[in-house]
Design a protein around this nucleic acid. Structure first.
Lengths: 138, 138
DNA sequence: GTGATACGTGCAAACAAGTTGCAATTGAGA
DNA sequence: TCTCAATTGCAACTTGTTTGCACGTATCAC
């Protein structure tokens, strides 16, 4: 949210701009993760003129600040969603219509520790996605 | 493996070709999932002349036949690995060097049932990937 | 408030991954 | 061996994402 945005940007000597606010705002309002093109289209719909390139650059900044998360759902593109006010969660995507729903669960705490022990990697993040058919497409 | 390949192809009125054998073979030999470009490079190294386009088309066929699985590891590209002789498993990828290791575990049976009940989707597949730092890059 | 400066933006162009159209080639059944 | 549809290679294209550069503008010091 805006407080975090300002603080995060400050901390890196970066600036708060109209575009950044607008892009974060679009993501905050969406119920599911958006692609760069999605964000761009929504900004246009709201009469906010921001270049697609700026959307990409801004998403990179917001991601680095930890304000948004990058998600891959088997589409060959990235999607982004806010972290603000949302619990850690995962997604399910319909193979028919592409509908995406949130799953407010994550039982991987213990598993992460196990993975670290087994592989000697330090786990920083994980992604868990389900794919299937929604009621309408079944 | 070849028997499955032949049977699968037959069943769809498709043919067994040198390229298809070679591509499946490359995937069988790899210890980690490969991108289309990786497969292409390895074929070239083995003096097997196959166009990159054919690699893409073949990967699509093998995937449809269920002989290989498509994996996304946060790189903005797809990777593929054989299913033959390998248990269902997941991966961990190093944020430093990109090294990919297999994780021979998957505790999601129960969770899948839970997801189906909650979302009313029919779950067909899931992906679970970890990201972190390998011992060398830490 | 004003000015200086480095960060941010738009536009065009480049890149990278993956796809498509089409003519030439080839596997597999008759 | 012949036939014919499936397969392949090549070129061109599409889509998603990144980069270079000149211009614009937040922010800080005064």
């Amino acid at each position: 949210m805006m407080t975090n945005l300002i603080a995060g940007l400050r901390a890196e000597g970066r600036r708060l701009t109209r575009s950044r606010k607008a892009i974060l705002d679009v993501l905050e309002k969406s119920k599911y993760p958006l692609s760069a093109a999605d964000v761009h289209a929504r900004l246009k719909r709201e009469q906010v003129a921001v270049d697609l390139v700026t959307v990409y650059r801004t998403l990179a900044v917001l991601k680095k600040l930890g304000l948004i998360a990058q998600v891959e759902l088997g589409e060959g593109q990235f999607r982004y969603e806010t972290r603000h006010g949302r619990e850690h969660h995962h997604h399910i995507r319909c193979r028919g219509c592409g509908r995406i729903a949130d799953l407010m669960l994550c039982p991987l705490k213990k598993l992460t520790a196990l993975v670290e022990r087994e592989t000697r990697f330090t786990v920083e993040e994980h992604s868990l996605e389900f794919f299937g058919w929604c009621p309408k497409c079944r």
